[in-house]
């Protein structure tokens, strides 16, 4: 049987969802028999998002121009896209900066002003490196606000049974059916 071409992507999140994936530990020895990881910040060194991906797990909210561009690329090259964890589903903690908006400035500017202005000892300035540092979006968005999403796996991070169920379903080229407390709970 052809191995599942799996990608994992890390947008505006804390990497906790990827750590949870890593927490499957030795289970991965068996999983790689059936899964080929073609793109991932923790399982692979590939820098370009490849073509013909069967399923892409996306951790994190969409918070920057980089996130937005990558979201669109991964959507165009993946058959299934799964929002992995609360940040991708609800924006979660990264979305807190949306609360700092005011008529004068966006939440992103408020965060940058605080971090690189108010708290700077010397030379307060916003970090700027065009082409290298992506700009923050005014509003942090959940993944499904920018691209169609096929399945949602809540949790901060999603507990291991939930991840197992997801991977099992994907390896069977299906979407998981999530219900009940163990499989479907934010936080």
């Amino acid at each position: 049987m052809r191995r599942l071409r799996l990608a994992t992507v890390w947008l505006a999140g804390c990497s906790g969802c990827h750590m949870a994936l890593l927490d499957l530990d030795e289970e991965w020895f068996d999983l790689v028999e059936r899964v080929e990881i073609v793109y991932s910040p923790v399982f692979s060194d590939t820098k370009q998002f490849p073509a013909a991906v069967d399923a892409c797990l996306v951790e994190g909210a969409v918070g920057s121009t980089h996130d937005l561009a990558l979201a669109r690329i991964l959507r165009s090259r993946s058959r299934l896209v799964i929002a992995l964890g609360d940040c991708a589903v609800t924006t979660n903690v990264p979305g807190l900066r949306n609360l700092l908006r005011s008529p004068q400035r966006s939440g992103a500017e408020a965060v940058l002003d605080q971090a690189y202005g108010a708290l700077a000892d010397l030379h307060p300035q916003h970090p700027q490196a065009p082409g290298l540092l992506p700009a923050l979006l005014d509003t942090v968005l959940p993944l499904h606000a920018v691209i169609p999403v096929d399945a949602y796996l809540p949790g901060c991070p999603p507990p291991l049974p939930r991840l197992r169920l997801l991977l099992e379903a994907l390896m069977a080229h299906q979407l998981p059916r999530l219900d009940g407390d163990a499989l479907l709970r934010f936080g």
Partner: peptide, 23 residues
């Protein structure tokens, strides 16, 4: 934001999302 809430795990709204199948 369940992850950072004092009621995480003991919240009726959080449980309601589970009950109605809101992912």
């Amino acid at each position: 934001i369940c992850a950072i809430c004092v009621a995480n795990g003991n919240c009726e709204l959080q449980s309601m999302a589970v009950l109605v199948g809101m992912d």
